[in-house]
């Protein structure tokens, strides 16, 4: 086994390991926010390691650059969905909000949302701060 092959094996194992850890995190962690940390994060690292491993394994010039582009695209798009989810959860789950130990966003929810929901269901937005 050459050092190149060992490097590929290490990369793939690392990637699979991070995927496993993020799966364990989704099961073990208690609420939406902390699960999002596990799901959104460890998986970006996991996918990067797997793609890099695949790129080195096939060692084709264009395939390798394609892997780099894929990693860049994942890094550019993954945080946007995570932020959108976190924001939706924060604005719509007052119970979850209250169990945070420290919440500096509490006072500003009404301003942060540009317009109240059209169906008049804005009772959920008035935070008991």
């Amino acid at each position: 086994m050459t050092t190149g092959q060992i490097a590929i094996i290490v990369l793939i194992l690392l990637g699979a390991g991070f995927m496993l850890i993020s799966a364990i995190g989704i099961v073990r962690l208690p609420d939406v926010f902390s699960r999002m940390h596990a799901a959104g994060k460890a998986s970006t690292v996991g996918i990067s390691c797997l793609l890099l491993g695949a790129g080195f394994f096939f060692l084709d010039e264009f395939l390798f650059y394609r892997m780099i582009v894929l990693i860049a695209l994942i890094f550019a798009t993954a945080p946007i969905s995570t932020t959108a989810l976190a924001r939706a959860v924060y604005n719509n789950e007052p119970a979850l909000r209250r169990q945070l130990r420290h919440d500096e966003m509490a006072g500003s929810v009404a301003e942060a949302i540009s317009a109240p929901p059209a169906d008049g269901d804005d009772a959920i937005l008035t935070t008991p701060s």
Partner: peptide, 12 residues
Amino acid sequence: TLTPGTLSVDVG
């Protein structure tokens, strides 16, 4: 958001 452990929620 990409850095694990921290997650940006909103801009206000």
